[in-house]
């Protein structure tokens, strides 16, 4: 079966449903973009609360984009896209979190009182 036949085979209702799903993602993404900018630009909360909230919203927005725009779920490609994504997420967290963690402690232990900005 070619791609063409598969696409013609999907019903109008199925396509309409996909489009609604997609627009739910658009609304979520827009809200999760506007909120952190609003928080920071108007200074609603104290620094640590604001930082926590913007990182939390960024994580949720990344999941929203991956699920609603890139259609990654347990069924797509037999689950291989999801598996590759989760593996990458683990490496990304290890790379960024590990580097920042280790270098922060190196800074604080080897240069006491140095300009770390904390």
């Amino acid at each position: 079966m070619t791609d063409m036949q598969a696409m013609d085979g999907s019903s109008q209702a199925h396509r309409a449903e996909r489009h609604r799903f997609y627009w739910a993602g658009v609304l979520l993404a827009a809200a999760l973009t506007v909120l952190p900018f609003w928080l920071v630009m108007t200074g609603q909360a104290d620094r640590s609360t604001t930082a926590l909230l913007i990182f939390a919203m960024a994580l949720v927005q990344i999941v929203v984009h991956v699920a609603f725009f890139l259609h990654v779920d347990t069924r797509s490609e037999g689950g291989w896209t999801l598996l590759a994504f989760l593996f990458t997420a683990v490496i990304v967290v290890l790379t960024i979190g590990g580097s920042v963690w280790i270098m922060y402690h190196l800074n604080t232990n080897m240069m006491p009182g140095a300009i770390t900005g904390h």
Binding site: P36, V40, I54, F55, A58, Q61, I62, L70, G117
Partner: peptide, 25 residues
């Protein structure tokens, strides 16, 4: 389409980690 959506996802990390967190910290 995948490439373009992927770049938007990277930008979420940029505007949060670089710009917003940079201004907040």
């Amino acid at each position: 389409s995948m490439f373009w959506h992927f770049l938007d996802i990277i930008w979420i990390g940029v505007f949060t980690f670089v710009y917003l967190y940079g201004v907040v910290r």
